[in-house]
Design a protein around this nucleic acid. Sequence first.
DNA 1: ACAGTCGGTTTTTTT
DNA 2: AACCGACTGT
Length: 745
Amino acid sequence: MTDPFALDDDIPDPFQPAPRRGGPAPVPADAPWLIGLNPEQHQAVTTTEGPVLVLSGAGTGKTRVLTSRLAQILAGRRAQPWQILAVTFTNKAAREMKNRVAHMVGPVAEQLWLGTFHSLCVRILRRHAEAVGLKSNFTILDADDQLRLLKQVMEAEHIDNKKWPAQSLMGAIQRWKDRGLTPDKIGADLAGDLAGGRAGQLYRLYQERLRTLNAADFGDLLLHCLTLFLSHPDALAHYQEQFRYILVDEYQDTNVAQYLWLRLLAQKHKNICCVGDDDQSIYSWRGAEVGNILKFERDFPGAAVVRLESNYRSTPHILAAASALIANNADRLGKTLRPGLKHEASEIEKVRVRGVWDGPEEARVVIEEIETLQRRGESAASMAILVRAGFQTREFEERLITTGIPYRVIGGPRFYERQEIRDALAYLRLINSPDDGLAFERIVNLPKRGLGDAALQAVHAVARARAFPLFEAARLLVETDELKPKPRGALSKFCDDVLRWRSLLDDLPHPELAEMVLDESGYVEMWKNDKTPEAPGRVENLKELVRALSDYENLQSFLEHVALVMENDQRDGVDKVTIMTLHGAKGLEFDNIFLPGWEEGVFPHQRAMDEGGNAGLEEERRLAYVGLTRARKRVLVTFAANRRIYNQWQSALPSRFLDELPAGHVEVQAERGLMGSWSQPAKPKGPGAWAIAPKERTSDFDVGERVFHQKFGGGTVLAVDGDKLEINFDKAGTKKVLDSFVEPA
DNA sequence: ACAGTCGGTTTTTTT
DNA sequence: AACCGACTGT
């Protein structure tokens, strides 16, 4: 066995610049990255020693501070690039930071330890895999494989998957991992009655299965890293020594495991700089703990705290609207955003709010506005539609297609999640890692080789009996007469093929190998013979996959990229409107922002409130804050009075967040009667002016009266609450609607 | 072994 | 409505 602590990768290679001598050097005050910083930014950049917490509001130049700080440390000869750890939350942020630093300090930026938590953990784990029970070429499973594996475990344990869906147990396991909890830490108190009280045991079995498959899921990457650090003090000491400076982006989004990871690594030098904004914490559902910000000063006594409050992005109206909204959250550190830019008064528009009848009309209104802006010279690329949930994109897409406006959906079906790509990857995974049983199962009978349930069962039986990986079990099985001749021959051929491909791994360039595999396996052929309309596209995607392979040194690094960088950044030069979720928009900015679907239940999302209570509502509000602060010049917020959900029409009430926008900075344009009590002209009277009307206004309808509603048809009034009616519709059941939507029948 | 049908569920956000 | 998974018949 190789020494798990071999760290020879860290020895500087001859291509790196000679180590700087003579310790820190002064950085000239006119260094390019210091020019134009405001005093707070300057302080955040130049306070390189000791712990620093930067509370950075939206649009206050956070990325600039981080990159300048990196440049400052490097130019001040305070550390070699590989002694600096810079952690981001997304791959996009990592890439941008790397580019910007490279621009300032040149190619040494390549040597920084800069990346997402997950990619940095993989980098460490590849070297110490044995220490946590894996081999260095371990596979990183995606969500799909994770669930598949857990289902297998649960099935083997005879857990009724109707009563205990694998999905919810998966969620629990992930949250445990987010908190740094290994199976031995899961007591009855944590497991609860999940999976009949056997959740802890199932978690353990799942982890065991992962190890046998030489695989790790996303959460494992951090968890194993923590295990490594805690069980191998020499490894921890090595990295503590190495990372003289640590920088963390989006600190408010770190979960407990990530927090522990950082805290361990920072113990030696304590030069850790965390940048975050509690008002933009929107990932608590994924285990993020805003509390990590609060703990910072406790864990690192004497930490310098810098507040960045000058906003260089949005107009005063937008800032005022966002600030007033977020002020409704009780649980926050409190920051005040100040306009940092000069704006031409004539150019400044108020935030606009518009109510419409239903979803399709909302799409029409938004796209009309897009066209208007385009006529005024705004580019499509300057506009983004930010939705709460993925399903909302459809109506806008449809409308954009009919209008012929180019658009792109970020976060839609991703390239590496497509069926054909995952199948092709399974072939490559099996070649790369013989232990990858999930890959084996996925492709052993794809294309159809006449290997069905019976054959697969037999393979499983052998694997279990001998504690072999599935692939090895299959090889053994075909030497026996266990299988009928036909399946036996097919399986034998399959095994021979895989072995042959694997033997070529070192000799053939990997793109050629991939091409050969896809060809000889008959996989491409399968799609070429497929008559469905999407088949040609799939063949194209496979070609693209082979092409993408050539961008990577070897198969292993490609597979890793696929697992960690699940994004499709179609940043072609074409001028396109962007559609994405609010979560996806964090960190981005656009001149023109559209915020549709501001209705109770949609936004704030019902489930967020049901499951998260008031904390859930506050997180939704932060999401709204993130949405508003993406805009530089214009915001259009819309809501629809009726929405089709599960193919059922439902009436909706305007989002409470609308009430929280300050009247003086908002302009309301609603169609007659659609706003309910929100009728224009509203009398602006400071914040809250939009509040749903005084209860004095009572509907003209009476209980028991027959009414007619455009979408729901006829019904009987059950109750009257101000201008809201509860109506028992003959067809659609009981619903609450505003009285302006119904007429006497 | 596999295709076709039936019935139940789905829509929160993602490294 | 549309998709998925389990079941059934060939």
